[in-house]
Computed example of a mutant assay.
Amino acid sequence: MPNSTEVAQQTVSENRTESNKTESKKYQSGKLLLSTMQKENDLEIDNKKTLETRASTLIAFVGVILVLFINNFNLSVLDKIESRLLYAIIFILTLVIPLASFGTTLYNLFRVMDTRPYRRINLINKDLVSLSDLTEEEVALRFSRAYQEGLKENVTTNDQKKRNFKIGLYGLLITIVSVAIALAILNTVNYISK
Rank of each mutant, 00 (worst) to 15 (best):
T36Q: 12
I97R: 04
L43I: 01
I174Y: 03
T156A: 12
T188F: 13
K161W: 10
N3R: 03
Y118M: 15
T175E: 07
E18F: 10
A184W: 08
F143R: 13
N41L: 08
L51S: 06
N3H: 03
T11Q: 12
P117G: 13
S101F: 08
A146R: 08
L75M: 14
N154Y: 00
K25I: 08
S35L: 15
D79M: 12
S101R: 04
D159H: 04
I124V: 14
L128E: 02
L172T: 15
I97P: 07
I70Q: 10
N125T: 08
F110T: 11
S56I: 13
V96Q: 03
K49F: 14
S56L: 14
K152T: 14
Q160N: 12
K194C: 15
V177W: 06
I59N: 10
T22V: 11
E44P: 06
A88R: 07
V112N: 03
R16H: 03
D133Y: 10
T188S: 13
I185F: 10
N41G: 05
V67K: 10
D46G: 12
F165G: 00
R116C: 07
T104K: 10
A8N: 13
R163F: 11
Y147T: 08
V62A: 15
I81A: 05
I181G: 01
E6R: 13
L123E: 15
Y87N: 05
D133P: 02
T36S: 11
L33P: 03
R116Q: 11
Y147E: 06
I121A: 08
T36P: 01
S76G: 01
I192T: 04
N158W: 02
G63H: 09
E44K: 00
A88D: 12
T135K: 07
T157L: 11
G103A: 14
S132R: 05
A146Y: 03
F102Q: 06
I70M: 10
L134H: 00
I192E: 04
N122S: 11
A182I: 02
L169W: 03
A55E: 03
A60I: 15
I176E: 00
S144V: 04
N15S: 03
L93A: 08
S101W: 01
V177T: 00
R16K: 09
L66N: 14
E18A: 07
I89A: 01
S76F: 11
K25G: 12
R116V: 04
T156E: 11
N164F: 04
V179Q: 04
S4A: 01
N3F: 01
A146L: 14
A140Q: 00
L151I: 14
I192M: 02
F165E: 07
E138P: 07
E23W: 07
L51W: 06
V177L: 06
K31G: 15
R116M: 07
S178F: 00
Q28W: 12
A100T: 00
I45T: 09
T104R: 11
A140T: 02
Y27D: 00
N154F: 08
S101G: 06
R16C: 06
I70C: 10
I45Y: 05
V96I: 04
L131W: 09
A180C: 05
N164A: 05
S193V: 11
L86R: 14
Q28V: 08
K161R: 10
N41D: 14
T5P: 09
A140C: 08
T156H: 01
Y147P: 02
P117C: 12
L34T: 03
